[in-house]
Nucleic acid binder design. Structure first.
Lengths: 225, 225
DNA sequence: CTGAAATGGTCAGCCTGCCGACATCCCGTA
DNA sequence: TACGGGATGTCGGCAGGCTGACCATTTCAG
């Protein structure tokens, strides 16, 4: 990929828009680009040199693995998000990132290079710090959810959240393109496939939503709270 | 509190030791100090101007409150830790900090002031970012614990952790000064008082530990894993 | 010293939601 | 169009651990 394209890609990123064009060009030099199709694995925490990734396009999921080999979908990330060793520490949990949509594009930096850039750009540093702060807040929220709410409330909250992020309005209905399986959703809200299926059918019965394998139509958003 | 004392307080902090003395003196000017005794509340997220705190001495606990008024001990912090609006965003969960030990000392900055300092000190920015990253990692771990482990495993893990942080060795035994109630512990590992009591007695029965209201003596650390 | 409040101990009952098992449905591919 | 694998639907069983209830013990202020 040539520098022009890289420049264009980074230019509009919320994280890098605090940089002037000279600084941006400098970053372009240390950037690596990568593309992936649906189902392809983008990064593996243990067989990878320490890298920070930003997602330029598409949707990916981050899957965490515990000692016993259980897998849990830890996060769904959209365009603009960061993943990999973005905490700037090199001790990672066992996790990998996999493309959920087609045409995923992301760029990455070596941890060391990125640190050096941050050290020279205070505005970027501040921006980046806030970014991570956001992630921490988000994680704290998820934790609180798990502590305070039951499965039903967590699913409802998840759906409301999803709708507000990616839903498109169509005459009192909100339509969601569904790229997640019940298993994925279960994993995200920390439950099991069966329970999710059951709750989905319950919601359908109550006429709160309709769904198929490809989309979810929310008819009564208010009922999810 | 005079500048000399402030200077001395900040000098050895892991976060601020990347600054030279001129920079440090500058920070001293915007610092506020506060002391508290056991049981006193140090900060309340909603009736407080946005501030970042660092704990200079003593132990505190962070308590989170949900919409229904349920309280959960979110964290126990030791000397050197950060709390308050340290993510540099001004939207906080409902929480407060309360002194657990006597003679708690902490210093605080206004969010804006602190941001300005960070913007001018890239090294500090980097250090600070790593700090928050560390907190994020810790939070992710707690989340994973909740997802993967049952209550017994969580309690064992919690005790092992505690022992490694604050335990003092005495002839094959590890002694912990116990400033937490069963209720506190339950809250931290996301369980209930009764269950914690029950598990503690089980551990005592198996001769893995002894405990009273004031201390916990771990006799067989290995058995906790 | 005394009484109230906080903490710890114990138990029966029950409920959420996990687990295993199996049937069915959908969809891409050959 | 037939096949196979992944995704979804459904159900009974059951257990971890929460709930409420009550009492004993310790702590601490007045």
């Amino acid at each position: 990929m040539n520098l022009e394209t890289k420049y264009w890609h980074l230019h509009n990123h919320k994280l890098f828009n605090v940089l002037n064009s000279a600084e941006l060009k400098e970053i372009c030099l240390i950037t690596n680009f990568k593309t992936a199709k649906k189902g392809e694995i983008i990064y593996f925490s243990h067989d990878e040199s320490n890298r920070v990734y930003t997602l330029k396009r598409g949707t990916i999921k981050i899957v965490e693995i515990d000692e016993k080999g259980n897998e849990v979908v830890k996060d769904i990330l959209q365009t603009g998000d960061l993943f990999g060793q973005f905490t700037l520490t090199n001790q990672a949990l066992d996790e990998y990132a996999v493309a959920v949509s087609d045409y995923v594009t992301c760029c990455s930096f070596k941890l060391d290079d990125f640190e050096r850039v941050i050290e020279r750009n205070p505005a970027l540093a501040l921006q980046y710090t806030k970014w991570i702060g956001f992630r921490l807040k988000r994680m704290e929220n998820r934790y609180a959810n798990l502590v305070f709410k039951d499965v039903r409330a967590r699913l409802n909250g998840f759906l409301a959240d999803w709708a507000s992020k990616e839903g498109t309005n169509h005459a009192h209905e909100i339509i969601l393109k569904n790229y997640l399986t019940h298993q994925d959703i279960a994993s995200l809200i920390c439950s099991t496939r069966q329970t999710v299926t059951q709750l989905f059918n319950e919601l359908k019965e109550k006429n709160i939503l309709d769904y198929s394998r490809t989309e979810i139509i929310i008819k009564n958003l208010a009922a999810l709270n």
